[in-house]
Design a protein around this nucleic acid. Structure first.
Length: 539
RNA sequence: GGCCCCAUCGUCUAGGCAGGUCUAGGACACCGGGUUUUCAACCCGGCAACAGGGGUUCGAAUCCCCUUGGGGCUACCA
């Protein structure tokens, strides 16, 4: 039975790279009828934040990635937080110590730094002739020195990683230096915890980023020393950002900083307040000295109206992408079904997924293509599913449209066929959810539409024609406009646009008949009147 | 610096392991045209790639080597 896992370290939101790793592991488990485990690698006390785990789980659920074992669902190998598995790791550390395969060391960070500086690049920890005893360790502890444990990596043999994607990768003897397996705070290091947990949890296939390929010989050595199995390894290509380099969460703060610097003078106090930071924090961020957490970054961007590149899964949700899109797109980054299918649903993805078809080379995250996938998925998704996604999207930002009933939202969704994101739909139908006297008239629209080609005159004529209507249909409205266009000998655009601007304040809305239909006669008349009265001055 | 991985249109990729059927296929983007009542969507057409150099072979995008380029790792982070 195939067992895969995703093991995020909860240092922030789940980003797309992590989501892709999770997805591939999940797809493979689902494809083979195996099990998928979620394990939280929270052994770094300095970096983990308490809310991050919940956010990561939430992001995975949004994507539709479920786990058979892990936080919230439990399982036979609990606990699934590494921070709670201390005793287990301690047992194996003890075993290695007793077998003389690992040893204590007492260096302070400063001493280590000095050694590294002296040795230059290619530093390898010098293994002592005699390993310190338990008594030595106790004494060191009593003296307040840090006590860590290093694994004595066999130096006389080569290690061969047998990788599904890359074939055999050889590492010469002496290539892997002795590395720390237990930190002085008592926590295991990543290298140690993965090896132990993968063994204990019965993981058969390790699918992870290529950046881990160089760590694998160390894991192999550890497995051998502990008498563990070696799982099947698949080191996937990495997703890179358009300007080269790994797609990283650091991109958002970077873009924000550049945007602010480009704006010239900004109100630091206001910014600090928006992000609930101190002015010093903001200054320090702008100077490139520090980086606040993601919610603070998001808050500042929102306050300034700067749009940041989406990096985290939640960013794509907020930008109006569907989980179906993300899953489809991410799956195609470094994998393909071997035929010419591209837009696929999850079931198709699962049915077609094979490790053998993973690509070796890195790929660029192309937001343009992502958007085109989203357009396709919006089109092909059943109405009720789309409605659910749209409600979730509206709720995320407490949009007034949340108040609308299902029938209204369904109608909106229908009218917005062809939209590329949920955000576009929201924008296109926002006019429905503002009060008639709150419509904001965009300068550009007023200038180009109402004040050209006798836009106001057209509007007045429409008002006159609408006066004694008692009911309205999209068709009737369009017939009226068509008639007026004919009378004036102009295109429909010259007639429809002034009305659209009067009703929406801008030039974007569903087909004009439907726009009036959604609004109803009274609100339409009120808005026409207001436009006629308020937009006589050229802005 | 050392070690490791990778290399087909601008981008994601098919083809490569079993060399000829590849005058290299698809998708996104882009360009041109059409449809149109705005934004989208839609329809038609077009541009565009085997990184370079050596081999092996009757024959190489496909196999080997070198160069170049890109990426990664080199922590008491994961």
């Amino acid at each position: 039975m195939v067992v895969t896992r995703f093991a995020p370290s909860p240092t922030g939101y789940l980003h797309v790279g992590g989501a892709r790793t999770a997805l591939f592991n999940w797809l493979y488990a689902r494809r083979t009828g195996g099990r998928f485990i979620l394990r939280v690698e929270d052994t770094d006390q300095k970096r983990n934040t308490p809310t991050a785990t919940q956010q990561v789980l939430r992001d995975l659920r949004w994507l539709g990635i479920d786990w058979d074992e892990g936080p919230d669902v439990g399982g036979p190998h609990k606990p699934y937080h590494q921070s709670q598995r201390g005793e287990i790791y301690a047992r194996y550390v003890k075993q290695l110590l007793e077998q003389g395969k690992a040893y204590y060391c007492f260096d302070t960070p400063e001493e280590l730094e000095a050694l590294r500086a002296k040795a230059g690049p290619g530093f390898a920890y010098a293994r002592p002739e005699q390993f310190p005893t338990d008594e030595d360790a106790a004494r060191a502890r009593a003296e307040g020195r840090p006590v860590a444990v290093r694994f004595a990596v066999p130096q006389d043999r080569e290690f061969i990683v047998d990788d599904v994607i890359r074939g055999q990768v050889r590492f010469r003897p002496g290539e892997v230096g002795d590395f720390v397996i237990q930190k002085s705070d008592g926590f295991p290091t990543y290298h140690f915890a993965v090896v132990v947990d993968d063994e204990l949890m019965g993981v058969t296939h390790v699918i992870r980023g290529q950046e881990h390929l160089m760590n694998t010989p160390a894991h192999l050595a550890l497995q051998e020393a502990l008498g563990f199995r070696t799982p099947v390894y698949a080191h996937m290509s990495v997703t890179v950002s358009p300007d080269g380099g790994k797609l990283s969460k650091r991109e958002r703060p970077k873009v924000l900083r550049q945007a602010i610097q480009a704006m010239g003078d900004v109100d630091v106090e206001a910014l600090a307040q928006a992000a609930s930071l101190s002015a010093e924090d903001v200054e320090s961020f702008l100077a490139g000295k520090s980086v606040p957490d993601m919610p603070a970054i998001d808050a500042m961007a929102a306050a300034l109206g700067v749009s940041l590149p989406e990096i985290n899964v939640v960013d794509f949700f907020r930008s109006g992408y569907l989980p179906e899109t993300m899953v489809n797109f991410l799956a195609l980054l470094g994998w393909n079904p071997g035929d010419e299918r591209e837009v696929m649903d999850v079931q198709e993805l699962i049915a077609a997924f094979e490790l053998e078809r993973l690509t070796k080379s890195n790929s660029l995250f192309d937001r343009k293509k992502l958007m085109s996938f989203n357009t396709e998925h919006i089109k092909r998704l059943p109405a009720d599913r789309l409605l659910r996604h749209y409600r979730a999207f509206l709720q995320e930002t407490a949009n007034p449209a949340t108040q609308a009933d299902d029938a209204t939202l369904m109608r909106i969704l229908e009218l917005c066929r062809g939209a590329r994101t949920l955000a576009e739909i929201e924008q296109k139908c926002r006019f429905l959810f503002v009060e008639d006297d709150q419509v904001v008239y965009e300068d550009k629209a007023v200038r180009n539409v109402l004040h050209k080609h006798d836009g106001l005159g057209v509007l007045a004529e429409i008002e006159k024609n609408l006066k004694d209507w008692t009911a309205v249909t999209a068709e009737a409205v369009e017939n009226l406009l068509r008639r007026l266009a004919e009378q004036r000998g102009v295109g429909l655009g010259k007639i429809a646009q002034p009305l659209r601007v009067a009703l929406c304040g801008n030039t974007i809305s569903p087909p004009i008949g439907d726009t009036v239909g959604l609004l109803g006669l009274d609100r339409t008349r009120r808005r026409i009147r207001r436009a006629l009265e308020g937009c006589t001055q050229n802005p």
